[in-house]
Amino acid sequence: MNHASYACVLDVAITAPHRIAFQVPAGSVCKLIVSSRDRKNELLSLLTGLAPPAAGSVQLLGEDLYAQDESQRIAVFRRVGVVPEDGGLISNLKMWENILLPSAYHHAHRVEDVEPRVVALFNDLYPDRRDLRSIMGKLPDQLSLRERRLTALVRAFLMEPDLVIYDFVLAGMDREAAARIVAATSEFQAQHRDRTSIYLCTDEGAYARVQADQTIELEH
C-alpha cells in the first residue's frame, strides 16, 4: 500500500480484541468520532507518539512513529500541530511565552514577528476580551479553559503545520465560541491545499459545523 498520499495511517491493536485502523488522506479534513473521553485519550496518545500500541503502526506524514527513536519521533512533530483539550501549556511560562515557544524554537520567530498575527487571531477568536495585553502576562493556571485552549490554537497556527490534530477543541465551549473556533480552523485549513486537519470529537451537535471530507466512527 502506498502511504505517501496519506497524512495519517493508523493500524494498531491496543489490547487483545481491540483493533483500530483508518487512513486520512493528505489535504483533507477528518472527523474522528470516539465513544468516550478515555478512548479519545488513548487514541491521542497513540497519534502523538506517547504510547506504543501492542501491535501495528502509526504513520504521520509518512513517518512510522514507533519505528523511530525518541529524537526522530520528536522531530516529526515539528510539522504537526496538536491542540490539546486542556491547552497543553507549560506552567512556568506566561501566556505569550507559551504561544511563542514552538515557533521561536523551530523558526526563530521573535515577538515582533508574530505579534500582528497573534493579535488578529485573538480578535477573531476572542472578541469579547479587549484587554489582551493583560492576559498575555498571565501563567496558565490563571487562565480560563477557553483562554488556555485558544492559546494552544494560536500556538499551533503559528507553526504552520502540515497536519493539525484538534483534541475535543469545542468541548465545554458556548455556541458562539465554538462557531468562532470552527471558522478559524476552517480558514486555517483552507490556507494550504496539502494541509490536513483531524478533529477528535464526540457525536455532539457542535461538531456538525465542521465540514469534513471524511467522518470515521471508532467504536472500540
Binding site: 506517547l50 512533530f77 504537526v80 497543553g88 506552567s91 515557544l101 523551530h106
Partner: peptide, 25 residues
C-alpha cells in the same frame, strides 16, 4: 519540585508534541 510538577502534569509530553526535546530545553 518544578521538574516533578511538569512531569506529573504531562508538560514533558507537551514539549515532545511541539517537536521540542524536553531534555534539551
Amino acid at each position: 519540585a518544578e521538574l516533578a510538577t511538569m512531569k506529573i502534569r504531562g508538560e514533558m509530553n507537551s514539549l515532545r508534541v511541539m517537536g521540542i526535546d524536553p531534555m534539551d530545553i
